[in-house]
Amino acid sequence: METRKTTQKSIRSEIDKNMKENGYTLSKLSELSGVNPGHLSEILNSNPPRAITIGQLDTLAKVFKKAPGWLYELYPEECIAEEKISRPRLIPYLVRCAEIGRQNCIDVVVSRLLENPKNVSILFTVAEQLFQTGGKVMSVPFYQLVIEAEKDSHSDHFLISQYRLFRALQGTSPEDNWKAVIRFEPYRNRLSENHQLDALLHLANACYMLQKWKDVEKYADELRTLAIAVYQDQLRKKESGKTVEMLHTERHLVVYYGQSSLLKGVALTMQEQYEEAEKHVIKIY
């Protein structure tokens, strides 16, 4: 009986196969892809081989005229080996999977990551990268995974994930917006001052769009109180010669104070409390 040899499919065997099919030498492939020829040689021929980055794999896919996500199902082996995880390779891979919709690849990796609670930080970093680069909707499943896996509801990862989730779910429908407000509200005061200032302003604006004037008042009051407290703390530090740490916020501190008064005034006006509203509007001039 004839015995057939089976060759396990791998990224390197597929690259080698496509090189032969296209008649490419190593130097030709390097020329077409822009990948350093030495690196290509180490990726394909060294023992152990040099790891390939997801960017290099995407570049080779274009050279071979393959669809985006070529060989992605094999890429986890470049990132995870014997419980050792390469964050520099895994995080860009998961981000890219989210961008092109390779949920099957994400699911496989996530199941392996969640075997160790420490790996939640990787999912959080992926979510943050997607959120910061405009992929708010794509970040949602990753933030949800962090929230579900994080045991400490006071941890930065948990709280920022709750905040980002609130932000990402805005702009869908009034009903969904209100649900997002209700879900996030219990966590708003646990955030750092940097995030609290932004969070309170976004909560007030969300309620403004929903015409929930009492809630607009509440968040505007909280925002004004916090803005004043932060300013006074900065002033004390400056007067005593201490270093004043830079606020990592979306806006300048004075904007939060001004917006709090404006939102309070509008909310009171909409409730026909005109004299009281006038006091708050005058404060910003």
Results as ranks from 00 to 15, higher is better:
Met1Val: 12
Thr3Glu: 15
Arg4Lys: 14
Arg4Leu: 15
Lys5Ala: 13
Thr7Ala: 12
Thr7Phe: 13
Thr7Trp: 11
Ser13Tyr: 03
Asp16Phe: 14
Met19Ser: 01
Gly23Gln: 06
Leu26Ala: 01
Ser27Glu: 10
Ser27Ala: 07
Glu31Asp: 12
Glu31Thr: 02
Ser33Phe: 01
Gly34His: 00
Asn36Gly: 01
Gly38Asn: 15
Leu40Arg: 03
Ser41Asn: 10
Ser41Arg: 09
Glu42Arg: 11
Asn45Thr: 09
Arg50Gly: 03
Ala51Glu: 06
Ile54Thr: 05
Gly55Gln: 10
Thr59His: 02
Phe64Asn: 03
Lys66Ile: 07
Ala67Arg: 15
Pro68Met: 00
Gly69Lys: 02
Gly69Trp: 08
Trp70Glu: 01
Leu74Cys: 06
Leu74Glu: 08
Pro76Phe: 01
Glu77Val: 08
Cys79Asn: 07
Ile80Asn: 04
Ala81Phe: 07
Glu82Met: 06
Glu83Pro: 03
Lys84Ser: 09
Pro88Gln: 03
Arg89Asn: 09
Pro92Thr: 04
Tyr93Gly: 02
Val95Gly: 00
Ala98Asn: 00
Glu99Ser: 04
Arg102Val: 03
Gln103Gly: 05
Ile106Lys: 05
Arg112Ser: 07
Leu113Asn: 05
Leu113Lys: 05
Asn116Leu: 11
Asn119Thr: 02
Ile122Asn: 00
Phe124Cys: 10
Phe124Tyr: 14
Thr125Gln: 12
Thr125Ile: 06
Glu128Ala: 08
Gln129Ser: 08
Leu130Ala: 10
Thr133Ile: 00
Lys136Ala: 02
Met138Phe: 10
Phe142Ile: 06
Phe142Val: 00
Tyr143Phe: 15
Tyr143Ser: 10
Leu145Cys: 02
Glu148His: 08
Ala149Tyr: 04
Ala149Phe: 03
Glu150Gln: 09
Ser153Ala: 12
Leu159Pro: 00
Ser161Trp: 01
Gln162Ser: 09
Gln162Glu: 12
Arg164Met: 09
Ala168Lys: 03
Ala168Thr: 03
Ala168Cys: 12
Leu169Ile: 00
Gln170Asp: 08
Glu175Lys: 12
Glu175Thr: 14
Glu175Ile: 13
Asp176Lys: 13
Asp176Glu: 15
Trp178His: 10
Lys179Ser: 09
Ala180Gln: 11
Tyr187Met: 05
Arg188Asp: 04
Ser192Cys: 07
Asn194Trp: 05
Gln196Thr: 07
Leu200His: 02
Leu200Ile: 02
Leu201Cys: 07
His202Thr: 12
Leu203Thr: 04
Asn205Thr: 08
Ala206Tyr: 06
Ala206Met: 13
Cys207Leu: 02
Met209His: 11
Leu210Thr: 02
Gln211Met: 10
Lys214Gly: 15
Ala220Ser: 06
Asp221Val: 14
Arg224Gln: 12
Thr225Asn: 13
Thr225Gly: 07
Ala227Phe: 12
Ala227His: 06
Ile228Ser: 01
Ile228Pro: 01
Ala229His: 07
Ala229Met: 06
Val230Leu: 05
Asp233Ala: 14
Leu235Phe: 11
Arg236Val: 12
Thr243Pro: 01
Thr243Leu: 12
Leu247Met: 06
His248Phe: 11
Glu250Pro: 04
His252Trp: 14
His252Ser: 13
Val254Phe: 13
Gly258Asn: 10
Ser260Ala: 15
Ser260Gly: 07
Ser261Gln: 15
Gly265Cys: 01
Ala267Arg: 06
Thr269Cys: 10
Gln271Cys: 04
Gln271Trp: 08
Glu275Phe: 09
Val281His: 09
Val281Ile: 15
Lys283Arg: 13
Ile284Thr: 13
Ile284Pro: 00
Ile284Arg: 07
